[in-house]
Amino acid sequence: KEQQNAFYEILHLPNLTEEQRNGFIQSLKDDPSVSKEILAEAKKLNDAQA
């Protein structure tokens, strides 16, 4: 469930490039146990690119 939530949120971050988004999603698939950390990174990058 946590992985699904992170997946959904990353898909809807407006400021990520397609490449960045795909990278985060691939990381989620590779290691779902760190989905919280991956989501935090994605949000940080999204904010930095706002």
Rank of each mutant, 00 (worst) to 15 (best):
K1S: 15
K1Y: 03
K1F: 04
E2W: 01
E2M: 04
Q3W: 13
Q4P: 10
Q4G: 15
N5R: 08
N5P: 03
F7C: 08
F7L: 14
F7M: 11
F7I: 06
F7N: 05
F7T: 11
F7P: 03
Y8W: 05
E9I: 12
E9K: 03
I10Q: 02
L11P: 01
L11S: 14
H12I: 14
H12F: 12
H12Q: 14
L13C: 02
L13F: 09
L13G: 00
P14N: 13
P14T: 13
N15S: 06
N15V: 02
L16N: 00
L16V: 02
L16H: 00
T17E: 03
T17A: 03
T17W: 03
E18I: 09
E18V: 10
E18G: 05
E19L: 09
E19T: 14
Q20S: 02
Q20R: 01
R21D: 00
R21E: 01
N22E: 08
N22K: 14
N22Y: 08
G23K: 14
G23D: 13
G23T: 11
G23L: 13
G23A: 13
G23W: 09
F24S: 01
F24D: 00
F24H: 01
F24K: 01
F24G: 00
I25E: 02
I25Q: 04
I25N: 03
Q26A: 09
S27T: 05
L28G: 01
L28M: 09
L28T: 03
K29L: 07
K29H: 09
K29I: 12
K29Y: 15
D30M: 10
D30E: 12
D30V: 15
D31A: 09
S33Y: 11
S33F: 12
S33A: 10
S33I: 09
V34C: 06
V34P: 03
V34I: 13
S35E: 15
S35V: 10
S35P: 05
K36T: 07
K36E: 10
K36S: 06
E37L: 15
I38Y: 02
L39Y: 06
A40S: 13
A40T: 15
E41L: 13
E41N: 13
E41Y: 09
E41H: 09
A42P: 00
A42F: 00
K43V: 08
K43C: 03
K43T: 06
K44S: 12
K44D: 06
L45Q: 08
L45D: 02
L45N: 03
N46R: 02
D47Y: 06
D47S: 14
A48T: 07
A48E: 08
Q49C: 03
Q49W: 05
A50Y: 06
